[in-house]
Nucleic acid binder design. Structure first.
Length: 226
DNA sequence: GCGACAG
DNA sequence: ATCTTGTCGC
């Protein structure tokens, strides 16, 4: 059976970890993050997001595969899995990635780039959900967050496309990007195998008339539909 | 000690 | 994330 990604199995890279173990896992994985562009031509981009059912008992993950630059939807999949962990700020990936990986395995082709709902390196230990996914698959990812987890930033100019750096411990960890006028900005950060400037550039390239770039907007729509 | 805290 | 309707503004 053709899976877009091979599943990996490495020590201390599991999912069912106690909070302190998960934190240790993040510190360890953060060393292998690549913040340089490591991809060639982008012809397909995937958007991925998660939602919940039955008072949180079930995690629903949705993935949308889009053709670039047409932004036409080529495929979309939704999977449901038992929720294995509560939401703990800083440990989101351990709650949502297992279901997202199953959704990604439904894809017949491998996307050239993946946009994830949430943070990339804009995380206390530089391992937000987009980065965790990127390192796990060793594939280019971008974090597209709707609110701030950590870091500080100045006010963002109101024109579409303007952005200011998001910094944490004197380090630039992301961009606060105005994707629509008069609308709350997005928190963009590199996930893996991409630099900040390119991450912002690709988000801008996937923008139409909405606040969210199409890949995550479509995935959002599928993951939170009732 | 107190507050903040992706989805 | 989820519980939830209408309503103000571009």
């Amino acid at each position: 059976m053709p899976h877009a990604f091979a599943t990996r199995d490495q020590p201390l890279h599991g999912w069912d970890l106690a909070p302190s173990e998960a934190v240790a896992c993040q510190r360890r994985l953060a060393d292998s993050v690549c913040l340089k562009d490591e991809f060639t031509s982008i012809q397909t981009i995937a958007g991925i997001d998660a939602g919940f059912e039955q008072q949180g008992e079930i995690t629903r993950a949705a993935v949308v595969l889009m053709e670039y630059p047409s932004l036409r939807i080529l495929e979309h999949h939704v999977v449901r899995c038992p929720t294995r962990m509560p939401y703990i700020p800083g440990l989101l990936s351990f709650r949502e990635l297992p279901a997202m990986l199953e959704a990604l395995d439904c894809l017949s082709g491998r996307p050239d780039l993946i946009m994830v709902d949430g943070m990339g390196i804009a995380h206390p230990r530089r391992l937000g959900i987009a980065t965790h996914l990127g390192v796990w698959l060793d594939w280019p990812t971008i974090g597209v967050g709707k609110s701030r987890l950590c870091g500080v930033h100045d006010e963002v100019p109101s024109a579409r496309g303007e952005w200011v750096p998001l910094t944490h411990h004197q380090e630039t960890i992301g961009a606060v990007l105005r994707t629509r006028e008069n609308v709350k900005p997005l928190y963009i950060s590199p996930g893996h195998r991409i630099c900040l400037e390119s991450a912002v550039e690709w988000v801008m390239k996937c923008l139409t008339r909405y606040k969210l770039p199409e890949p995550t907007r479509q995935a959002d729509k599928l993951a939170s539909r009732r």
